[in-house]
Write a protein that binds this DNA or RNA. Structure first.
Lengths: 357, 357
DNA sequence: TCCCTGCGGGAAAGGGCTTTCTCTGCGGTA
DNA sequence: TACCGCAGAGAAAGCCCTTTCCCGCAGGGA
């Protein structure tokens, strides 16, 4: 690899001058020398060693991001928002997938700290695991003590800046919708128990049911991986235990899609026989058939805000931005079948026509 | 930030010794000193400066990856394969999204070179753009000249190691399937014209039709963005121009999903009235309704192989691994409607039942 | 004419780490 | 007893940049 001194030597100038030309320093350099340096750079295909630059420069610029999995649409959307702001500010993003492994998360905090990132963003559910939470907070505190900025998206455990989707309110919306459609036998397809996102959404759901005098026994809940196959499997178990279920609330859209697959495999019509609601409103939700009724979270916006928080002015008090959830009615949730209903209602038909686009 | 000399001072040893303990050097250190160093590390929450390490160490370890967009399922799958091998070998991956912008791609090659990556992998279609191709090849050659390894996935333009999905054969399979089902009026929903992937797949398709004495006029092809909305829009234009179409070949699954949305909006039954085939077999393909008939590419495997190529022994001659495409029959492709058929055939019904899972 | 100023350029000091080289002191052999 | 070898630790030389500091020179004011 050509180095700066190679360039300088070839151009017949000092490394200092070469550096100034290459970085567009404010210090003036005569056109003559500038040309020579630029020519040498081109001839040698010189690219500055980023590590040497970062070592020599004092200010840190890159931002580290830890998500569960960027290829999961939930995080893909959030990341899109993070990217947007970062790119606008000329920041490089280092994105790490923890694959929902707390240890890996801890390791990545170290790794990113070692890479001298200016800020750290943790996106994705926290864990009900005190030992882990304590360790993480220690590491984050150590990082912040050295001037690093931290923001979290959707997790309570950190005491600093945070962007919080209103998971509980979202759960409530999903629950209320199903209740209003007359459903009484509602099963829940939930993500891993250890995730706070799961319990938050579940709490909202439970509250909505409680307002209708319904309770949500554990046998009506199945915990599984937060993905398509987890949803399919949990739905199957739910249906096996309780064939009379008329509605399924899935705690994210991937699981909802898995639920739809299971229902289709069992020839249970959606929404005529069983209604389904999802959560997140990922892009694919409108393209499955029937189109998925779900709870929308402003994912891109969450990313935008978190990045703004972390790149903006430092606030004395930690800022917590709660972003609202919103029900999106499509075609998978309809009135409960007559036989199973507690109240009179309209004929069981989809709420909306096909999704024109 | 605590530095190595802080640790050394605190432990009462030299930086050299501290470094040896921290990195588990082969040089022996007495237990006494080792303990002291470790204690100091813990107390100071010391994390080595990655840039300083990379600068001091001679060997490069990270691998750079340039894809169009990791959140696109096509690349998400490839990346999964790349990750798997990289993680096994303890390599860090730096993933960059070019968002199909050639200039950005060029910039990222520089950036990654600057970050001293040991190897570079470019995934995703090449461009029909000679100026760009030449520039890219120059940059890659310069990088290889300094000992960097390069592999590409799915692009012809590079002369070194490559993993190539057989796009042309895949296009052929899709075309043949539609022909065998009796379709004669086939529209193509294509990606951007400038991408070699588009033209390769199209060439295979055209060949299959040609074998049936059918040609594929330009008016039966619509080029659009390689995503869901592009597919929806292209399908609409195709149908407007030629309402008698009985089949749509989409050049990737995202576009196929867009096509299905348009067909649904226009109440054209799939596959009874119009058949659809996709390309790639991304995970969601089996979950749309009807489940998508498509051409499968071994995406994860493509990633695995590319990374193995680049981390394995250097070969004198460039290696090109061509991975076969395979037709996956699901429910969106059925026999052409009687009125439109050239040959007798079975009743128009799906090829398969619901996707049990 | 002399001094001061300011400009353009180079020398050199880091930045934090790894690693080679060197040094000390010990045990073992002749 | 004299010498050799080696284990274990430290000194110091880089790795490749950026940036401060300093120097020489030319031009302008006194």
């Amino acid at each position: 690899m050509a180095t700066l001194s190679d360039v300088a030597r070839r151009a017949g100038v000092s490394p200092a001058t070469a550096s100034r030309v290459i970085n567009g320093s404010s210090k003036p350099v005569t056109d003559e020398l500038r040309e020579r340096v630029l020519a040498a750079v081109a001839e040698l295909q010189y690219v500055p060693n980023a590590h040497a630059q970062l070592l020599a420069r004092s200010h840190r610029s890159a931002v580290g991001v830890i998500v569960h999995d960027v290829s999961d649409p939930y995080f893909a959307e959030i990341t899109r928002g993070l990217q947007r702001v970062a790119t606008d500010q000329g920041r490089l993003l280092m994105i790490c997938n923890s694959y929902r492994d707390p240890d890996r998360e801890l390791e990545y905090v170290e790794l990113l700290r070692g890479h001298q990132v200016a800020a750290l963003i943790l996106a994705g559910s926290g864990y009900h695991d005190d030992a882990f939470t304590r360790q993480l907070n220690e590491k984050l505190a150590a990082y912040e003590a050295t001037g690093g900025r931290v923001a979290v998206i959707g997790r309570h455990e950190h005491s600093g800046d945070a962007v919080m989707p209103d998971n509980r309110a979202g759960g409530y919306l999903a629950g209320r919708e199903l209740c209003e459609l007359g459903h009484r036998a509602i099963g829940v397809v939930a993500g891993p128990r250890i995730l706070t996102t799961t319990t938050d959404r579940l709490a909202g759901l439970r509250q909505a049911l409680a307002e209708q005098g319904l309770d949500l026994p554990e046998r009506r809940i199945r915990y599984a991986e937060f993905d398509r196959d987890g949803g399919a499997e949990a739905t199957a178990r739910l249906l096996d235990a309780d064939p009379e279920l008329t509605a399924i609330a899935a705690l994210n859209d991937s699981m909802a899609i898995g639920a739809l697959a299971t229902l289709r495999a069992r020839s249970l019509a959606v929404p005529q026989r069983v209604s389904v609601v999802g959560f997140d409103d990922m892009p694919i939700a409108r393209d499955v058939t029937p189109a998925l009724t779900t709870v929308r979270l402003p994912l891109v916006d969450m990313g935008v805000r978190a990045m703004s928080l972390v790149l903006g002015v430092e606030a004395p008090a930690p800022r917590v931005e709660v972003l609202p959830a919103e029900l999106v009615r499509r075609d998978t949730a309809g009135p409960a079948p007559q036989a199973a209903r507690g109240t009179a209602g309209v004929a069981p038909s989809p709420r909306r026509g096909a999704d024109g686009s």
